[in-house]
């Protein structure tokens, strides 16, 4: 690898640009690949295969070639609505699993810097908060307030924008009521069924860290199902 390439890679990492490093294992040549930019002429003939590997977000040697691809893909963005006790544990799990995290809660006394050090906190109602943060199909929503005033607008935004994972805290009864409200708001069953509710896999625990663990376990398992 050339020093110049190393410099280029580090710059792209800092800017969080999605790219791949491609290496020809036969002759040691390597370069940076970006989807929207023309490919290095040495790798032109593998273009289609490199793009397909990149889209799969997979690192490895492309079948039948000597080309190694390592992708740099942005981590899943996890938005937690409700800076509640469970969120404090969730944040720690999510951090060690390399998720990017932000918290939305209009209630200032919950969402304080002191309770969530070094986490992006947005002290606004979900509708305004979502104007501030970019969301896409790589975003996960974890709604924890079980207060319709706060959770519902966030869930509606997540459904409309096809978030990769949507989960909402609350009992079966709470969730049934939530589904009824969403139906009334114009969402169909297929959309509503995308919400994991009650959120989390069945662990049996009821304490805040146990619930956080069951939620994060569900999120991780959904990542690998993709």
């Amino acid at each position: 690898m050339k020093k110049q390439l190393l410099k280029e890679i580090i710059e792209k990492k800092e800017k969080k640009i999605e790219f791949a490093i491609i290496t020809d294992l036969e002759n040691g040549e390597s370069c940076v690949f970006e989807k929207e930019k023309p490919i290095d002429k040495n790798f032109e003939k593998y273009k289609e295969k490199i793009i397909s590997q990149f889209d799969k977000k997979k690192n490895g040697i492309i079948d039948g070639t000597n080309i190694f691809v390592e992708t740099y893909i942005r981590p899943i963005n996890v938005i937690i609505v409700g800076a509640v006790h469970i969120a404090q544990y969730l944040v720690n799990f999510a951090k060690s699993l390399n998720f990017e995290i932000s918290i939305i809660d209009p209630r200032g006394y919950f969402a304080s810097e002191q309770r969530f050090p070094n986490i992006k906190i947005i002290n606004k109602w979900p509708k305004e908060a979502f104007e501030e943060i970019k969301t896409d199909q790589n975003t996960a929503l974890i709604a924890l307030t079980h207060d319709p005033k706060i959770d519902d607008p966030a869930l509606q935004h997540a459904l409309k924008n096809k978030f990769f994972y949507i989960g909402a805290l609350g009992s079966k009864k709470t969730h049934a009521n939530r589904c009824a409200r969403l139906k009334e708001a114009g969402f169909n069953d297929a959309q509503i069924n995308k919400i994991f509710g009650p959120i989390g896999i069945k662990l049996g625990g009821k304490s805040a860290p146990e619930i956080a663990l069951s939620i994060i376990a569900q999120l991780v398992s959904e990542v690998y199902k993709k």
């Binding site: 190393l6 890679i9 990492k13 969080k16 942005r74 981590p75 390399n98 998720f99 990542v223």
Partner: peptide, 13 residues
């Protein structure tokens, strides 16, 4: 989960 953006090995190099 692996996140290449967080790895600092190339920076160290």
């Amino acid at each position: 989960m692996k996140n290449s953006f967080d790895e600092k090995i190339l920076e160290e190099a």
